[in-house]
Design a protein around this nucleic acid. Sequence first.
DNA 1: ATGAAAGCGCTAACAC
DNA 2: GTGTTAGCGCTTTCAT
Lengths: 340, 340
Amino acid sequence: MKSRITITDIAKEAGVSTALVSFVMSNKAKGSREYRVRPETEKRVLEVAAKYDYQPNSSARALRSGEYRTIGVVLSDISNKFYAEISRQIENWAFHHDYVVLFGSSDENPKKLSNVMKVFKNKGVDGMIIVPCEGSESAISQMAGSGMPVVLLDRDIPGAEFSSVVLNNFKASVIMTETLVGKGFRKIEMISYKTTLSNIKDRESGYLKAMEGAGLTETRIHRPEYCNYREIEQIVLDAKARNVEALIFTTYNMSLMGRKAFISHGLRVPQDCFFACFNNSDAFDLYEPDILYVKQPIEQFAVEAMTLLVKMINEPESAQSCTKIILQPEVVFSSSEVHV
Amino acid sequence: MKSRITITDIAKEAGVSTALVSFVMSNKAKGSREYRVRPETEKRVLEVAAKYDYQPNSSARALRSGEYRTIGVVLSDISNKFYAEISRQIENWAFHHDYVVLFGSSDENPKKLSNVMKVFKNKGVDGMIIVPCEGSESAISQMAGSGMPVVLLDRDIPGAEFSSVVLNNFKASVIMTETLVGKGFRKIEMISYKTTLSNIKDRESGYLKAMEGAGLTETRIHRPEYCNYREIEQIVLDAKARNVEALIFTTYNMSLMGRKAFISHGLRVPQDCFFACFNNSDAFDLYEPDILYVKQPIEQFAVEAMTLLVKMINEPESAQSCTKIILQPEVVFSSSEVHV
DNA sequence: ATGAAAGCGCTAACAC
DNA sequence: GTGTTAGCGCTTTCAT
């Protein structure tokens, strides 16, 4: 590969020292502080730099300054629509703030999450945004304990002192359940799964709370063992047989399977059974305008997490106290959305 | 941030030189070549490294060796399902081959694509995988011309000497059209858009070729101006009024809008009009088992592109000759798929 | 306002 | 087999 233009080349051609070039190049971006370079010198340096299309070597810069302007993002699966959209927003924010982002997927596997974090650390990320998974607490604690700024996204680890940005899942679930009750449904059940993940637990308790508040004692939370299609289908059919009036799905994947089961067996929404879920999908609002879902504030997730993380990076003292940002949910009928 | 353990610390504690430590650390991974370290020394070094959980500083390594083991991927939009899945596979491959991946989105904007490439170059990527967009030819040429290994993905730039990994879109379109003809349809039209992008053009010519081959002279390719919902809806309604028997959508977004238009106006597949598209969506096979679509070999896209790129990086002489990899398409009815 | 010089952590030649 | 040493390109005191 053709060797790139360096600060030394520019210094030589402009007849100044490398230090001066460095100063001009980096302070140019930062706006005026104690800017002390003679305008004509600056101009000359800038011209030479432009002439050769000088690009600073970020490895050298990082090595020297310890500032990498790189952050690592570990999601459970970047091909999941919700996380893909979050990634998109994170990338966007990063681009405009001159940060670079490394993405990794954990596949809900704590061992892999830990591996990815390690790789990211080697690569010199300044901080990490992490969607924790079941069993990843200790690995994350260790990483954060080693001084790495960490912000949890989407899910919090209950009881742990981590900064995080999550949706108010409890409230979302309460509103959703109350909306269902408001529509006249009484026999409302939830399809969740066995987990300790905060977002899911909160969705469960929100449902229970709202049902209780409405004086409905007949509650039920299904927790399929493997969360595969067969199980979900079985639960849906069984629910239908028992005349359940509304089903709330707590995860994206299960709601996809749930929809599939509805369709396959000719169950209509809302006539046969109402369908409610967290995270919308192209697959839903295209067909059934009466589905109820929680609209996740994707961009806010990204912006809040990045802003918080960068603050922690730049003000290590602030990183001590953990900040928890709770985003407000919006529960909507897909019919109220403008489509595609 | 707590200062990390360096090669120097380890050398000191193990009573050897930094060079030896470096040698042990890097050749350990590479398996046996001319491995010339006394086993006991190696053991000692490894132990000390493990004790302090030594992690090499990749900036320093990159600065020194010129090897970054980082590749940049510029897609049009990472939140688009197709690209999200590709990203996932690329990330996966990279993880297992000890590479790091930087993602960027161009939003089909050549200016932004160029910007992202520049940022990636600064960050020191060893090569790039790029989904070119309309008008990005010159920027990509310039990048490739400067010695940066580049592999085009999904779309090729006709006439240009770039290595690329694309689907055989022409063939896919031919098969798709022939399948439609085989099902007895005669009045088949295509919804595309005004572009010079190779994948779209190939889809168009495949359709024309197959129609011609079947002796069907009545062909028509719609090219809406803005590709918004109103336009697509209009085209669909108009097609229905003219008794068009099958509609082929050339892009993911337009097929989503097309489906929406079908649903909104109660058009049934296959009774009222057949629906065919490239790239499947959760939104399709969930509902209409008779949709015809091209199954993109996602993993192959990722693996081929990464393998090719890494080869170009490691063997600069091979980077001279451009390699074009054409992936075989598979045209399927969504009903033949196992769902969710 | 500008320059000299000392490294950041690592690798690659070359010496022993 | 193992150590010495010279930088990679940049930032950052500290002089001037």
